[in-house]
Design a protein around this nucleic acid. Structure first.
Length: 606
DNA sequence: TTAGGGTTAG
């Protein structure tokens, strides 16, 4: 028997089950026959057995076969890097192929330092890296975030004249992107002679890494209109979906979903997870749930986006059900999933459940709480008025509390009117972050609520001394396939007079239903009438009026805000949802509010 | 006659 002919499972069984027969049989194999058999192994045990026979026979193997042994161990799913290494070290004169294999194997197994050391060793032994070496080495740099080493290796690429290789160039873009060096990534991309879909995906991915969301969308357009007319692939669209998610571009996200469905028969788990995240964060929980429920394969990422999604929409009970399903499926929860779980409890006011989950995380799943977990717990306790307990928790934390934690406590104190703890929270907050105008305003709001105008004035003076100006709030609303932006007291819309007429009309209806403007939200030293005038022109109200005019009856409204909502806008929107019989979804910096029939899913705490 | 490369999610 020679070569690769007629090698099958029967031969393998002969080899492993009957040592005498198999030894006889093995003598009739040449090295390629062995090789073929080795490649057919199903696990490391089988491989080791065959390899032992291989040594026992003492047949001479050329370097090609030796390299293949290393490759099989290093690169197959069932392989072992340790075993690969032991064979590799026995090769007297390893070639670049051997080094490439070992580097790649180490990168795949996240042994990144090891991969870079092998590259150095290769150079020291005078073995010339080739066009296959660099993609692996650069990937190690990108995963390590090792820009300095990446730049050095880029130098080697130039020296060896491999900069024109498409794969090497794409790897360079990826390395620079992952290391946050977007300019260098663009430089490589701009200088490329030829670009593949992967080049475009890499440059879009690089912009995702540095959170340049708008540029991602522009690049997608460039890609599709470029000379090569590259068509985006799944990986490209996953990056673009991430940009849509952050920008709240529901329409583009939905368009991409349609595009994916038309062009790809079965979307993979990564794409579906990105779709869920996009729908949920763009306010469409139902669509996200639909994708999630129809997934044949779910992993920890898919569960995390769904749980966190349900959390920001205030569906705490459902989030806990999905979490139980995840554990039942045998997926081990990690710290990120627990951030979703705890924030679900916090957003839905599930205090007991939250406290229980916090314990379970530490004692059953052995996860040390991070600052985010503490943040959720402070929020959860604060929401239910457990202000002392929340403060005690902060004091007992083994890690230094950050501004998010103190801000949660301050907000809770504002709602429950605990001036003493509120002031402590504010003092700590200002020590960590003295220049955030929003924090001063929350504190001022707290004092305004109890009519302590002296304190309010003091805080405003402090703000003025520090030249802190309130971040201008804006609201975005989609109508007629366009996004419109409104700022407070906005008169920039070509139809502003119609909008203000609508505001006026709404005012009468609101008064009739019992709405009273909460002028304590206006911290300016102006009379009540002026305060009411300012209140009714908050950007959110203008956006609602505009949307009511431009959408048909019963059509849900979707609004995105850059800041948290003021409590007057919240009350106002509850009334509007009832009077005009509209579902209104508002995404603010913190969560989603769904207004329907005069109530909000946040249960008036945010 | 001879192997091997880049991009994606919380």
């Amino acid at each position: 028997m020679t070569g690769t002919t007629a090698l099958n499972q029967t031969h393998f069984l002969l080899l492993t089950n009957n040592s005498h027969q198999s030894f006889e049989l093995s003598k009739s194999f040449n090295e390629k026959g062995w090789l073929c058999l080795l490649k057919r192994c199903n696990n490391m045990e089988e491989f080791k057995q065959v390899h032992a026979y291989f040594l026992k026979c003492g047949i001479f193997f050329d370097s090609f076969c030796g390299s293949n042994l290393v490759a099989t161990c290093a690169l197959t799913k069932w392989g072992s890097m340790d075993y690969a290494c032991s064979i590799f070290t026995q090769i007297e004169e390893p070639c670049s192929f051997d080094y490439n294999t070992m580097i790649r194997g180490n990168v795949n197994n996240m042994k990144l330092d090891e991969a870079l050391l092998l590259y150095v060793e290769m150079l020291e032994r005078g073995i010339e890296p080739d066009k296959f070496t660099y993609p692996f080495v650069l990937k190690a740099c990108s995963l390590l975030g090792a820009l300095k080493e990446g730049v050095q290796i880029h130098g080697h690429v130039l020296k060896t004249g491999l900069e024109g290789d498409l794969f090497v160039e794409n790897s360079l873009i990826n390395m620079y992107g992952k290391c946050g060096a977007i300019k260098d990534a663009c430089d490589v991309f701009d200088k490329m002679g030829e670009r593949s879909v992967a080049s475009w995906s890499a440059i879009i991915g690089a912009h995702v890494c540095v959170e340049m969301w708008h540029e991602c969308l522009v690049l997608l357009g460039d890609m599709m209109s470029s000379e090569g007319r590259c068509r985006p692939e799944e990986s490209t669209l996953v990056s673009v979906l991430s940009a849509c998610t952050h920008l709240g571009s529901y329409n583009l996200g939905r368009f991409i979903h349609g595009n994916l469905l038309r062009n790809i028969s079965e979307l993979n788990v990564v794409v579906k997870t990105s779709l869920i995240d996009m729908y949920v964060k763009c306010g469409c929980l139902e669509k996200g749930l639909h994708v999630f429920r129809n997934m044949p394969e779910k992993n920890r990422y898919s569960y995390t986006v769904m749980i966190s999604g349900l959390a920001v929409h205030g569906h705490g009970k459902e989030a806990l059900e999905v979490f139980s399903e995840m554990v039942e499926q045998g997926l081990e929860p990690d710290d990120v999933v627990y951030v979703g779980v705890l924030s679900a409890c916090s957003h839905a006011g599930l205090v007991d459940e939250g406290l229980q989950c916090f314990k379970r995380m530490q004692f059953e799943h052995k996860i040390k709480p991070t600052i985010q977990h503490y943040g959720c717990m402070v929020d959860l306790m604060g929401r239910s008025g457990m202000l002392k307990e929340a403060y005690e928790l902060i004091k007992s934390m083994p890690i230094k509390p950050n501004d998010v934690v103190w801000r949660s406590l301050l907000s809770a104190c504002k709602v429950h009117l605990n001036l003493e703890i509120g002031q402590i929270a504010a003092d700590n907050l200002f020590m960590l972050n003295p220049n955030n105008p929003g924090d001063y305003l929350v504190l001022a709001n707290m004092y305004a609520k109890v009519q302590k105008w002296d304190e309010v004035a003091k805080i405003r003076r402090k703000m003025a001394d520090k030249h802190l100006v309130q971040t201008p709030g804006f609201s975005l609303v989609e109508a007629k396939r366009k996004v419109y932006k409104f700022v407070s007291l906005d008169k920039s819309s070509p139809q502003w007079n119609i909008v203000y007429d609508m505001i006026h009309q709404m005012e009468w209806q609101l008064k009739f239903e019992g709405y009273v403007a909460d002028t304590s939200q206006v911290l300016l030293d102006v009379d009540e009438e002026e305060k009411r005038e300012r209140l009714k022109c908050h950007s959110q109200k203008l956006a609602i009026a505009f949307a009511l005019i431009h959408t048909s009856e019963g059509c849900p409204l979707r609004i995105t805000r850059n800041l948290r909502m003021c409590s007057d806008c919240h009350t106002y929107t509850k009334y509007i949802s009832m009077i005009y019989n509209r579902e209104i979804t508002i995404r603010d910096r913190h969560r989603f509010h769904h207004f329907k029939n005069g109530t909000c899913t946040c249960k008036d705490y945010w």
